[in-house]
Amino acid sequence: MLYRVIDETEAPALVAAFMERYEVVAPVKRGDKYVFSAVDSFDEIALDYPTTIASPKKYLLPAKETLFEFDAENNEVTDYTDEVRPRVLFGVHACDINGLQNLSSVFNDPRYPDPYYAAHAAATLIVGVACMPSANCFCNLMDAEEARAAYDLFLTNIGGRYLVSIGSVVAANVLEAACDVREATDEDRIAFRAATRARQEAFNRDIPDIQEIPMLMDAFHEDEFWEELGGRCLSCNACANVCPTCYCFDIRDTLDPGAATGRRERVWDACTSPQFAMVAGGHNFRPTPASRVRHRMYHKLNGFLAKHDRNLCVGCGRCVSACKVDISPIEVLKFFDRKGA
């Protein structure tokens, strides 16, 4: 990996350079919260944000997306083409970068590549920024506190300047043209290590570090804990809506007035929805909230790991904040901690 250093005061010039060719999406403040939104100026960006309400997932996997259009009267199907705007996701935390990498593992599967996701990904540059964890963050326990790949630039503030990790030639060219880029010195590297240690020490130590989570998910699969946890679930899908790695979707046909033409759309769905596991004939493989919550946690902490060698959950903590009845992976970790006490 190639590392360079720029002054903190040069960040506006870097954003302005990206804006010449790309739409820039970045964290902005909305009330007392933060969201990812398109910006017109660096002044709108809040790089020191704790986390956003929702992840930037929607820019690669829209909540609703047209797949093709059809004409029922003439029995014709037309490929839907949408202009994919070149975009920079600026100020993305490491957990979200790892979340997008997990999505890519699914939608870029060489056996069944998804052309819609691929088009968005190909048009998107990712500029990450290092952060300090909030009370609900546990990305360190999910091995997602560092971004080792899947970004074009990654900025770490080391006191009045940024250590920039360069991940692509395209982004490197923009950086070189916009900023006074210099080689990292020993002083810069020492400051980077200090910033890394400070971040590691800031994680909430009340969240237990559990080893062998996959084995424990299997061992306690039938525990009454799931009935208690799932019994609280409101099936509101708030957890899935804010999650950076939920990728389930439904397919719907939407008819125009007159019902002669329409379009097939892909829309977000969630395994916590009561109808998610319902099949023809009305049978539901997961009819209770408890079975659905257990399935969700199993996939986040075990099922995806078995196939892709990493957790699907990246520990961003958004579901902790979104759930009104305290259902989250943290509750599962605490359960395992009690079992081991």
Score class of each variant (00 low, 15 high):
189 R>T: 01
180 D>P: 02
225 F>M: 07
290 A>H: 08
146 E>T: 06
22 Y>G: 00
331 E>Q: 15
292 R>Y: 03
19 M>N: 08
311 N>F: 15
82 D>F: 07
284 N>F: 05
139 C>A: 09
103 L>N: 08
163 L>W: 00
238 A>Y: 04
83 E>D: 09
1 M>G: 07
208 P>F: 14
257 P>R: 07
137 C>D: 06
141 L>M: 13
172 A>Q: 02
65 E>M: 08
256 D>L: 11
323 C>H: 10
294 R>L: 02
321 S>V: 05
128 G>C: 07
196 T>C: 09
102 N>I: 09
183 E>H: 00
223 D>G: 09
184 A>H: 03
45 I>E: 01
315 G>K: 02
162 Y>L: 03
288 T>P: 06
134 S>P: 09
326 D>I: 02
258 G>Q: 04
207 I>C: 12
8 E>F: 05
152 D>K: 06
309 D>I: 07
39 V>D: 07
166 I>K: 06
145 E>F: 14
2 L>G: 05
212 E>R: 14
114 D>A: 10
94 A>N: 14
163 L>Y: 06
324 K>C: 03
74 N>Q: 05
221 H>F: 04
144 A>Q: 05
296 R>E: 09
45 I>F: 07
330 I>Y: 02
10 E>F: 04
78 T>R: 14
277 A>L: 05
156 T>A: 06
188 D>H: 04
329 P>D: 12
265 E>C: 13
191 A>S: 05
11 A>T: 10
196 T>G: 10
118 A>T: 06
189 R>Q: 06
89 L>Q: 10
318 R>F: 14
319 C>A: 06
314 V>R: 09
107 F>C: 12
161 R>V: 00
184 A>Y: 02
147 A>P: 13
330 I>E: 09
89 L>G: 08
300 K>G: 07
174 V>A: 10
280 A>N: 04
168 S>Q: 08
310 R>H: 14
186 D>S: 04
21 R>L: 09
76 E>P: 05
319 C>L: 07
88 V>N: 04
109 D>F: 08
105 S>D: 12
187 E>H: 01
232 R>K: 15
122 A>K: 01
13 A>S: 08
129 V>Q: 03
221 H>E: 01
17 A>C: 06
246 C>A: 12
3 Y>R: 12
109 D>N: 08
320 V>G: 13
329 P>V: 12
57 K>Y: 13
133 P>C: 10
253 D>T: 08
166 I>D: 05
247 Y>N: 14
308 H>F: 15
107 F>S: 09
188 D>M: 03
257 P>K: 02
66 T>R: 05
24 V>Y: 02
114 D>I: 11
68 F>D: 10
136 N>P: 10
284 N>T: 08
201 E>Q: 15
300 K>V: 00
198 A>L: 06
47 L>H: 11
206 D>L: 15
42 F>T: 12
87 R>P: 11
277 A>S: 14
200 Q>M: 03
207 I>Q: 07
281 G>W: 04
8 E>V: 03
253 D>G: 02
21 R>I: 00
257 P>S: 03
58 K>Q: 15
239 C>V: 12
216 L>K: 15
158 I>N: 01
